[in-house]
Simulated scan of single mutants.
Amino acid sequence: MKNNALILTIIGGITLIGNWISFKVSPIDSILGMIILIIIALVGVWLSKIIPIKVESPTVIWVSVLALLLTSPIFPGHEVISQFTDKINFMALTTPVLTYAGLSVGKDINTFKKLGIRIVIVSLLVYTGTFLLASIFAEIVLRLNGTI
């Protein structure tokens, strides 16, 4: 758990710098939002270790579910959480995460080479399907809410 906290803190620091440079949001203004995101991620990691569910990426599932619950209208403090985390731009957050993912793929480059073009095709299909379904879902929810 200490390693996870250290890695998330480093990624959070890089995100704050990227958010400041690219989107002109002061780290002072966005640090509480980053702390909230780090705590949600750490609780999600902890939940994935104590709840025995056999799925491919239990940590991602628990972090996502926890974040969804904490920012949904059913949670009493969702407005405060959203207010602080809104100051962190999504693109600033993805840069260090994608860098970390790229480094992890780089260490298994021989395995990646063996998969060849198949992995590229499967990845493109998965990403396209995920994007389309998320877009359709967002469209439906936004129309039901009267936002669009």
Rank of each mutant, 00 (worst) to 15 (best):
residue 13 G to A: 04
residue 58 P to Q: 06
residue 51 I to P: 03
residue 147 T to A: 08
residue 116 G to F: 12
residue 93 L to N: 03
residue 79 E to S: 12
residue 22 S to E: 01
residue 33 G to S: 03
residue 141 V to I: 15
residue 22 S to K: 07
residue 39 I to V: 11
residue 43 V to Y: 07
residue 73 P to V: 07
residue 28 I to L: 13
residue 124 L to F: 15
residue 38 I to S: 06
residue 8 L to S: 14
residue 58 P to L: 07
residue 31 I to H: 04
residue 129 G to F: 13
residue 18 G to S: 03
residue 81 I to K: 06
residue 147 T to C: 00
residue 64 S to D: 01
residue 9 T to N: 06
residue 114 K to P: 00
residue 30 S to Q: 06
residue 35 I to L: 13
residue 118 R to T: 15
residue 139 E to Q: 13
residue 99 T to L: 15
residue 80 V to Q: 09
residue 48 S to I: 07
residue 58 P to A: 06
residue 19 N to T: 01
residue 69 L to W: 09
residue 99 T to N: 02
residue 42 L to I: 10
residue 121 I to C: 10
residue 75 F to P: 01
residue 40 I to W: 08
residue 96 P to L: 10
residue 49 K to H: 14
residue 145 N to E: 14
residue 46 W to N: 10
residue 20 W to M: 00
residue 8 L to Y: 11
residue 1 M to I: 07
residue 34 M to T: 05
residue 24 K to E: 09
residue 100 Y to K: 10
residue 7 I to K: 14
residue 65 V to C: 02
residue 76 P to K: 07
residue 122 V to A: 12
residue 142 L to P: 02
residue 107 K to W: 09
residue 80 V to W: 13
residue 97 V to E: 05
residue 27 P to G: 10
residue 68 L to Y: 11
residue 134 A to W: 11
residue 49 K to D: 14
residue 99 T to V: 15
residue 137 F to V: 12
residue 19 N to Q: 00
residue 19 N to M: 04
residue 148 I to M: 12
residue 40 I to L: 11
residue 101 A to K: 10
residue 68 L to H: 01
residue 49 K to P: 01
residue 85 T to W: 04
residue 107 K to T: 15
residue 77 G to N: 14
residue 104 S to I: 10
residue 2 K to E: 07
residue 57 S to V: 09
residue 148 I to F: 15
residue 1 M to R: 10
residue 104 S to F: 01
residue 10 I to G: 08
residue 89 N to M: 02
residue 9 T to H: 08
residue 47 L to Q: 02
residue 22 S to D: 00
residue 75 F to N: 02
residue 2 K to H: 06
residue 56 E to C: 05
residue 56 E to L: 13
residue 51 I to Y: 01
residue 145 N to T: 08
residue 8 L to K: 03
residue 50 I to P: 07
residue 62 W to A: 08
residue 37 L to W: 05
residue 61 I to E: 03
residue 147 T to Q: 05
residue 8 L to H: 07
residue 10 I to A: 11
residue 69 L to S: 04
residue 59 T to F: 03
residue 102 G to Q: 10
residue 124 L to E: 08
residue 78 H to T: 04
residue 1 M to A: 13
residue 128 T to L: 15
